[in-house]
Amino acid sequence: MNFLHLLARLATLDTEHTALTQAPRRAALSRLGQAGTALLPALLAGLATPAQAGQKEVRTRLDALKLILKLENLQNAFYSRALGLLPGGPANPATFFGSAATRDAIQTIQSQQQKHAALYGQLITNAGSALDASPNYDFTGSRNGTQPAVYPDVYTNPDTFLKVAQLLKDASVQTYKGQAAFLQSDNYLLETTVRAHSTEARHAAHIRTLRRQRGATVKSWVSATDTAITTAGSPQHAVYTTETNINQYVSLSGLVTRVPFDSTLPINVGTPALSASALLAKVAEAFDEPIESVTAESILQVFTY
């Protein structure tokens, strides 16, 4: 059994505890020896990686619910305007999307968005809290004409509309993912939130599929091969810079462990085999990433005044 524990600890490449580095040198050397040399580079790389910071944010459940509501209200307004349910959208909402199928899909999304907004509003008021006042929205990103528009043709060009939709959907998936952690103490709120989260991911995939059908280079999932839709330095860019992450962590008994994706793992992704860099690009694709509350807020601010 000692051998097992040894291996388990060896696999713990990057931990918050210092047990591994404090172990007697001789023991450490014998562990390396048992693992074989193939593991050595990974182990060294792992040790060189700074320990992952723990939860960076501390938020209440109410904070989490309010951010989700803000996000859902904004998206509900975005799609409602596009469909002509609220003023401020396309001149002719009936023909804006070009096809009945696209319009139907946007209707499905808007309807579920509205339900999310109603649900989260109710969760907040049921808990005895008041709802924040609704902000004003400007989906061109000009903040009611006080700055140059980022998306001036959002309601005149369906490609721009879908681009903004993709940005908001990907950001929504990330925001839900980030907030779920703050709801873990309440099983009902947690389950509600993870379920709304995967609905958002379904929407995101469809929007991306619609864009691809219109000629954009984009997968139904977030991929390094997607043509960028944000520019460096903008708040929106954070949605996609986080998605290049290839480090995933697990923990047990307080040990935070980085699971290495490199040549030392027998990752078998079929034939033909992928190069190391192509494999890591697929690793990045295979995991969606969270964004922190402050990042989510700054993205929402682009469309709010």
Binding site: V173, Q184, A201, Y249, S251, E285
Partner: peptide, 22 residues
């Protein structure tokens, strides 16, 4: 029970949902 595992599940489930939608 462990926060990190919840996050991992969240990171994977949305990719599965994207697959499902596609």
């Amino acid at each position: 029970k462990t926060n990190d595992y919840l996050l991992i599940a969240g990171k994977i489930v949305s990719v599965e949902a994207r697959h499902a939608a596609y």
